[in-house]
């Protein structure tokens, strides 16, 4: 570890030396951010500048990011594919108050997720944030209702197709942008009124495609991990047992 101690100290020294060269904290003055703040509402009728940056100005990054999530979930499915026998274990039964409260919580979280997605380009939020909230609502079903309910509510294959649909829709909307706006991921619907749901052109479509994909991807991810977790311990450790 001596080698790392010296190298680590040197590395840390370099990092801190670099940080000293940054402009003073709190004095951001570069044109890029300021320009986007200035033109986002007049040109795209969107009031959430971060959202419009993610889906329009830097929409290609979001395409890549969405497919990173897609590839990762496909990868996890590939890595955890050794299918244990489809064994739905005995769940502990949750008590009535928990189930009642849980049902309310699931519904609330689901509605919140939809809201966050829908107004993503108007107020803080967007496809990613709302999609995660929606996936959280589904995971809450597992927490309050047990594995059986989760498993019966969310079959694997349609979810994987929904995930592929969401990701593919984003890519294809980009091609539609070529037809109507002359550039990939060009904005092409009517711009509407800033501050309302009908604004920002084709960004709502991209927004919802992202939400579908993120929600489906995360639920598939949870299912893959839960599937391993729900196995009784004896069926998947080697004979000599854990070390």
């Amino acid at each position: 570890m001596i080698g790392f101690a010296i190298a680590g100290a040197g590395f840390a020294a370099l990092v801190f030396w670099a940080l000293v060269g940054l402009p003073d904290f709190g004095h951001y003055h570069w044109p890029y951010g300021n320009a986007l703040n200035a033109i986002a509402t007049p040109e795209r009728h969107a009031t959430n500048v971060v959202g419009i940056t993610v889906f329009d100005y830097r929409g290609l990054d979001t395409l890549g990011e969405e497919f990173i999530l897609f590839a990762s979930v496909v990868g996890v499915s590939l890595l955890l594919r050794k299918d244990p026998e489809e064994h739905v274990p005995a769940d502990e039964v949750r008590s009535d108050p928990i189930r009642a409260l849980g049902a309310v919580a699931v519904v609330l979280l689901f509605v919140l997720g939809l809201w966050v997605v829908a107004f993503g380009y108007v107020t803080p939020g967007g496809g990613f944030q709302g999609g995660v909230a929606l996936a959280g609502a589904f995971l809450l079903v597992y927490v309050v209702g047990g594995y059986r309910q989760y498993h019966s509510l969310l079959p694997h294959s349609p979810l994987e197709m929904a995930e592929a649909f969401g990701a593919g829709a984003f890519a294809i909307l980009g091609f539609v942008g070529i037809v109507y706006a002359g550039a990939y991921l060009g904005n092409f619907l009517g711009l509407g009124n800033a501050g309302s749901l009908y604004s920002a052109g084709s960004v709502p479509l991209l927004n919802w495609a992202t939400a579908i994909e993120v929600c489906a991807a995360l639920v598939v991810l949870f299912s893959e991990f839960l599937k391993i977790y729900m196995l009784p311990a004896a069926s998947w450790t080697p004979e000599e047992g854990p070390r």
């Binding site: 395409l63 497919f67 897609f70 590839a71 496909v74 994987e160 197709m161 995930e163 592929a164 649909f165 990701a167 593919g168 890519a171 294809i172 980009g174 091609f175 990939y184």
Partner: peptide
Amino acid sequence: ALPLAGAAFVAF
């Protein structure tokens, strides 16, 4: 864009 759309298509 083509391989990405294609990957989604193959998955679907």
